[in-house]
């Protein structure tokens, strides 16, 4: 059983495909990473997997059931997303931001139960942002904000987490902390993660499985990170001259 399955899917916006013949699976308890040049449709894959875009053709299944057959309530009881859109707040503490992630559990006026408070605290501690709980969200650095948004994404206790470049604003040290937290999360909660990332050099350590999307449109390769992340292939995928990968990342 796969948690996420794309089978020969055409995906895109308003009936115009961005990618065709997309097929891959993401398994339970693992991190599946999408990599590839800018503008190849990684976000489109993520949005379709999250049910925010309807597939134009082909099959997209969540837990072996067609994604279209889920009610929003059912679907987002399983899936939690962390997309790239920035959140503009004025008077919100980090706790306020994370609290909104408990949406489907809270009562009609959004009041928190003891259980809600406990999960919020646990999630924030797991990501290491509990100390920031009373701080003004808008005044945080981009990196801190991204970690708070990760806490918000896991506070709904999802089975599947879909993330679009979640670590892009973090510095080197914070990136490592972030991916450590993510790996810990997957292990502890047996979660499935579908993530797009630009940190190609870190993919080997983070992801169990890699899906490469090339500029020519479509999935170029998929498989274990150890096999795919090698200089020659990266140079080809990202359209670099021979030797450039080693020169900068080696």
């Amino acid at each position: 059983m796969s948690e996420i399955l794309f089978k020969n899917a055409s995906i895109g916006y308003r009936g115009v495909p961005v990618l065709r013949a997309v097929s891959f699976t993401a398994e339970k308890g693992g991190i599946t990473a999408l990599i590839g040049p800018n503008g190849t449709g990684k976000s489109t894959v993520l949005k379709t997997a999250a049910g925010l875009l309807k597939p134009i053709e082909g099959r997209v299944c969540i837990r072996d059931r067609s994604i279209g057959s889920y009610s929003p309530k059912e679907l987002y009881g399983i899936i939690s997303v962390m997309m790239t859109d920035r959140v503009k707040t004025k008077f919100m503490s980090c706790h306020d931001v994370v609290r909104v992630g408990r949406y489907r559990y809270t009562g009609i006026f959004g009041t928190l139960t003891q259980a809600d408070r406990r999960v919020i605290r646990e999630s924030m501690e797991l990501i290491g942002v509990w100390d920031l709980r009373d701080r003004d969200y808008a005044a945080l650095s981009d990196g801190q904000q991204q970690r708070v948004l990760l806490a918000r994404a896991i506070v709904s206790e999802p089975g599947i987490l879909i993330m679009d470049e979640p670590a892009s604003f973090l510095d080197m040290g914070r990136k490592i902390e972030f991916f450590d937290a993510l790996k810990g999360l997957v292990k502890e909660k047996d979660m499935t993660v579908l993530i797009s990332m630009h940190e190609v050099e870190m993919v080997k350590k983070v992801a169990d499985k890699v899906i490469c999307i090339s500029a020519s449109g479509g999935i170029d390769a998929k498989g274990a990170a150890e096999e795919l992340i090698n200089p020659a292939y990266m140079e080809e995928l990202f359209g670099m001259k021979k030797g450039r990968y080693e020169e900068y990342y080696g």
């Binding site: 999250a50 925010l52 929003p72 679907l75 987002y76 009881g77 899936i79 997303v81 959140v87």
Partner: peptide, 13 residues
């Protein structure tokens, strides 16, 4: 307030 897409991902119509 956190955006349409995010609200949708919480199951809101």
């Amino acid at each position: 307030r956190f955006g349409e897409e995010y609200a949708e991902s919480l199951g809101i119509s």
